[in-house]
Design a binder for these strands. Structure first.
Length: 1061
RNA sequence: GGGUGAUUAGCUCAGUGGUAGAGCGCUUCGUUCACAUCGAAGAUGUCAGAGGUUCAAAUCCUCUAUCACCCA
């Protein structure tokens, strides 16, 4: 049956995938041979909500190449697939669906009901990306597909029946780390998403340059004090000197002024030295309650930027937070969880008074400061952006905005640009009108990548990993080489980040995720419970005081962590034990939240009052509602997917894993955290090598984005060009650390490469090369007597070494390009052409040998290309011959370049040189392509003469030579072709254009002269001969001799042409 | 502002000290029985610029310019 002319990827890919599936070809350990090492790769888990994009396609192609390569080498191989549960993204998807289907909001449902919906959604859509990865040919062990929420409450365990119980692992790690003091609860500044009302990670924040404003305001000095403000230039000349009763600050967020705790200047800033330590007034809020804040020094303010003075709002800015912490400045939270100005707490007047006491030096606690709402009553409840407008209005109305001329260019487009008189403007006599200085300038604004709202730095209670305490081993592992990061620059970035590591916020105010295994209880002992009578019993007065204290002092709960409620119960013995009888006998029960706890405790106490039955007393505890950051669970990916905390067979075989291939952008978020967590939890590195790659961009280097409209959908590419073409393109782009620009032209080019391979195989098949084919052992090469065959065997062995060496070092591009050049230019261009006359040989032994050899060479191409282009190679493998196994399990070749026959190599490169030389001369002399012409030869050495004799048929065929005649001298009008050891001539008297031939020779001589000049220059330099390695000198000498010889021959040819004129 | 990296053919990129390559594109020719998703031939480079180290620099060092990314 004749093969089609092209590979029908669309039809073949599903069929081949099914074949692999049925054979369980990708199972852990498939094709493993005894005594071989293991090889394992963890997929960077894509979001369960995700759809395949070019980045995934690239990343997974590389993983698949390595996986298939190692599997073919007989290694015990696992590529572990799975998805992460993507807290916000998934919750968002389900909320959208809920809204669309039943017009319900998440909060209309109970947490359990909502989570059921999420699991339902996951069951329905969660497999999308898996199917897309399969279309790429990814050879993951799909039966082991894992999920970072597997085993969590509500998991119906459909679709990932075999994945390990990830939830248990996550909870266990949390509790262990908590017990070791590595996890704590604290109030810190985090990225707050006012839309989703949760903390989010830096990775989920996009900093986008947005047109914004910078307002300049005056903060009056307390008590009407004044100072002399002097502005100097670089040389110390006074530019401006004036008496001021204020300090000028600039801000892009005036609403945060309400929470200012200080104004900071640089310690070296002479302009403000005289007022450091004095108080100034925040120029906003009711006049009678204006707060005074200190002017402090800190290294943070940049004296050359703006006025050099910076307002410090510790609760709403990351830089200010650091300054406030250093200076003990109180941090006043101004907004609620939705980004609106706070409306809770005591009236402004009370809060401001207390804040003033603090500014004046009163003692304060963090918790107390958080209860103070410094938003003036009339601004409470406003959205933060409305509040900004009001604040600006009020300050400006009061005359405390810094003023400037209308024509100030800093005002941006809105500024009136006065026309010069020559432009038709009038001479201005009047002073320019003064307007508030509000600079129009682009500012970097943080946006939530899902919510698209402006992220607010917010001081909130969160859970943190004390990363600084577990970072040491993670740094050491890279420093001492246990883990290699590629490219090397990644190591620098890694060190820099880890050496300056910040506590890692792991709590999220979401429903979808691993609920933090911490329970809170009222700290009944905390307010200093006093047993008035000392009788060890509780009376009504005492109980009332206890309850009152609890409801008045939120925040003073105590907490314990444990895997579940049963295990945590006993831990509350520490509270109960300190309490008097009968409270110390209370039963620990679980309730919904703090309010319920207080209520139940009250009821329980009241009941006790009447019954005096201590068995009815309860101590209610409630669970932390927050869930863990998805990155916390994916940090456990390497051990969690292998079944830890059980000590499984897979852990023994595949952990630590071999290599992690992932994007540069998640070096911190994921790679570093996996390092820290694996080392902290099992005291072992998660992987030995980290291969980082860049973002995949469009062909011009732009980021792909929906708004730009330059997104390439990998699945559309697969539909049009086949998965192999996309994969090969990915591999050929993958130089270490390289920029990834994906172009459709290039993909088409590699599709053509597939077609080329297809047709070479088709040719072999049509010539009976595969009749009675035996697939040779991986270390064997075919017996060959023919030079051509001996040559291609050697070339194949060389490329095998090249490919292995390249893959060993993760140089995917070198491996791919090496195979491309070999397959196309060595095999398809030369070998197939050379083989044609041999296949037609009258000597049946020659034809038979060539068929065997050609089939072997094609086999080797298929085998070595398989990791890169699995579909087309598997297809050809199956269609050409009856094979003992699928190509995916074919053993990788092990023959070496020792099989290269140097004589055959020399001879074939001479043959190629002759053919190239003749073709080039013919083309330039405009010899009709189909015309067979006679050829002459003058000088020819015995060696080359013999080579000609052996290869005459194929040279004549490929160069379209009719005959060869030895002559003493070339006739007039002869194109000269010097090839090592011989000078050939094409007698083209009828056709030749003397001028053209001269030009051709001159050009070649010119090139030779340049080379000769360079070589002579080096060889004549005695220092070169002294210092350069011997082989370099010898090479230069050899080159020089060859060039000079060639030049001499061409000069002879030139002389002959001169003779004709 | 700090950090990291880049700058090589028209385009996209390789090239870790020995005198520059690939793919695509372009030009010319070609319907030879594997392949027009093809074949043959051809053109194109101050390796961003300026210094330095070296017998030798695209490659190592310094500075400058431009760009990109990360962190502020």
């Amino acid at each position: 049956m004749a093969m089609d002319k092209t590979f029908d990827a669309a039809a073949a890919e599903p069929r081949i995938s099914a074949l692999w599936d049925q054979a369980h070809a990708f199972r852990a350990g498939a094709n493993a041979k005894p005594g071989k090492p293991s090889f394992s790769v963890m997929i960077p888990p894509p979001n369960v909500t995700g759809a395949l994009h070019v980045g995934h396609a690239f990343n997974n192609t590389l993983q698949d190449i390595l996986t298939r390569w190692h599997r073919m080498m007989g290694h015990d191989t696992l590529w572990q697939p799975g998805q992460d549960h993507a807290g916000i993204a998934t919750q968002l998807q389900v909320e959208k669906k809920l809204k669309a289907e039943s017009n319900l909001r998440r909060t209309d449902l109970s947490r359990e009901e909502f989570l059921d919906k999420v699991w339902e959604w996951k069951g329905e859509y969660g497999g999308t990306i898996v199917n897309q990865l399969k279309r790429l040919g990814c050879s993951c062990d799909w039966d082991r597909n894992a999920f970072t929420m597997a085993g969590a409450p509500g998991d119906p365990r459909t679709g990932h029946e075999n994945s390990p119980d990830f939830h248990d692992a996550v909870i266990k790690v949390f509790v262990d780390m908590y017990d070791k003091g590595l996890i704590y609860r604290g109030k810190r500044l985090v990225n707050w998403d006012p839309h989703f009302e949760t903390a989010i990670s830096d990775l989920e924040v996009e900093n986008i340059e947005t047109p914004g404003h910078m307002w300049h305001f005056k903060y009056p000095l307390a008590g009407g004090e004044t100072y002399t403000y002097v502005e100097k230039d670089e040389d110390g000349n006074v530019l401006l000197q004036e008496e001021r009763d204020y300090i000028s600050i600039a801000t892009t967020r005036p609403e945060t002024m309400l929470g200012d705790g200080a104004v900071a200047v640089h310690p070296s800033d002479e302009r403000y030295a005289s007022i450091v330590g004095k108080l100034c007034e925040i120029p906003v809020g009711p006049k009678e309650h204006r707060r005074l804040i200190p002017i402090i020094t800190d290294e943070y303010p940049d004296p050359t930027f703006g006025s050099g003075a910076v307002k410090i709002t510790g609760a709403h800015d990351f830089n200010d937070y650091q300054v406030a912490k250093r200076g003990g400045i109180p941090m006043y939270r101004l907004m609620d969880t939705q980004g609106q100005m706070r409306a809770d707490g005591a009236p402004y007047a009370d809060a401001a008074t207390r804040a003033q006491d603090i500014a004046n030096g009163a003692e304060f606690t963090e918790a107390e400061v958080d209860t103070l709402n410094l938003v003036p009553d009339h601004l409470r409840g406003l959205d933060r952006f409305e509040a900004r407008e009001k604040v600006v209005e009020e300050i400006t109305a009061e005359g405390l905005a810094v003023m400037t001329q209308e024509s100030d260019p800093r005002l941006g487009k809105a500024a009136k640009k006065p026309l010069a008189p020559e432009e038709g403007g009038e001479d201005r006599v009047e002073e320019d009108k003064l307007v508030p200085l509000v600079e129009s300038k682009p500012i970097m604004q943080p946006y939530g990548d899902r919510s698209k709202v402006v992220i607010e730095p917010m001081l909130t209670d969160q859970w943190f990993v004390d990363a600084a305490r577990i970072v040491g081993p993670a740094l050491d592992a890279v420093r001492n080489g246990r883990v290699t990061i590629m490219p090397e620059s990644g190591e620098k970035t890694y060190y820099h980040w880890l050496e300056n590591i910040e506590p890692w916020c792991i709590s999220r105010q979401l429903w979808w995720g691993h609920q933090i295994p911490v329970w809170y209880g009222l700290d009944l002992d905390a307010p200093g419970f006093k047993d008035d009578e000392g009788d060890g019993a509780l009376d009504l007065v005492e109980m009332g005081r206890l309850l009152n204290a609890q409801s008045m002092l939120p925040g003073d709960a105590i907490h314990h962590a444990a895997a579940d409620f049963d295990s945590v119960r006993a831990r509350f013995g520490d509270v109960l034990g300190r309490l008097p009888t009968p409270l110390n006998h209370a039963r620990v029960v679980e309730v919904e939240d703090r309010a319920t706890a207080i209520h139940q405790l009250a009821e329980s106490l009241a009941a006790y009052e009447t019954t005096q039955d201590p068995t009815q007393l309860v101590y209610p505890v409630w669970r932390e509602p927050d869930v863990l950051d998805t990155w916390f669970s994916s940090g456990l990916w390497p051990i969690g997917t292998l079944g830890w905390p059980e000590q499984t067979d897979e852990l023994d075989r595949f952990f630590p894993t071999s290599v992690l291939i992932t994007g540069f952008d998640i070096l911190f978020f994921w790679v570093a955290r996996m390092m820290m967590m694996q080392l902290a939890v099992v005291d072992e590195v998660p992987f030995h090598t980290v291969y980082l790659h860049q973002l995949v961009r469009d062909e011009k280097g732009k980021k792909m984005s929906k708004t730009t409209g330059n997104v390439i959908d990998p699945l559309e590419i697969v539909d049009e060009y086949g998965a192999d073409a996309l994969r090969f393109t990915n591999a050929s782009m993958a130089s270490i650390g390289g920029v990834l620009k994906l172009s459709v032209d290039r993909i088409a080019g590699y599709r053509n490469f597939g077609t080329k391979l297809w047709n070479a195989t088709r040719f072999a098949e049509m010539n009976g090369a595969f009749e009675g084919h035996t697939t040779l052992a991986p270390d064997a090469v075919p017996e060959a007597t023919q030079t051509v065959n001996r040559w291609i065997v050697g070339e194949t062995a060389k490329v095998r070494e090249t490919v292995d060496a390249a893959l060993q070092e993760y140089r995917f591009n070198d491996a791919a390009n090496g195979l491309y050049a070999f397959t196309w230019h060595k095999v398809c261009d030369w070998y197939v052409e050379f083989a044609k006359p041999l296949l037609a040989s009258e000597d049946p032994a020659v034809a038979a040998e060539t068929k065997t050899c050609m089939a072997w060479v094609i086999d080797q191409c298929l085998i070595m290309l398989h990791p890169f282009m699995p579909f087309i190679t598997e297809e050809l493998w199956g269609t050409t011959a009856k094979r003992g196994e699928l190509l995916v399990h074919r053993d990788w070749p092990t023959y070496t370049a020792a099989v290269v026959d140097p004589a055959a190599e020399r001879e074939m490169s001479w043959v190629i040189g002759v053919v190239d030389g003749v073709r080039s001369a013919r083309a330039q002399m405009h010899v009709p392509a189909g015309l067979h012409i006679p050829m002459l030869v003058t000088e020819i050495t015995a060696h080359e003469d013999a080579a000609w004799a052996r290869n005459a048929t194929l040279i004549q065929r490929l160069a379209r030579i009719e005959s060869l005649e030895k002559v003493d001298a070339f006739p007039k009008g002869c194109a000269t072709v010097p090839v090592g050891g011989a000078v050939f001539g094409l007698p083209l008297a009828d056709i030749i254009d003397v001028a053209e031939e001269k030009a051709r020779l001159e050009k070649t001589i010119g090139k030779l002269d340049k080379e000769i000049g360079g070589l002579k220059g080096r060889l004549n330099n005695p220092k070169f001969r002294e210092s350069a390695p011997e082989e370099v000198v010898a090479e230069a000498e050899g080159n020089l001799a060859a060039r000079e010889d060639e030049k001499a021959k061409l000069q002879d040819a030139m002389r002959r042409l001169e003779e004709i004129g």
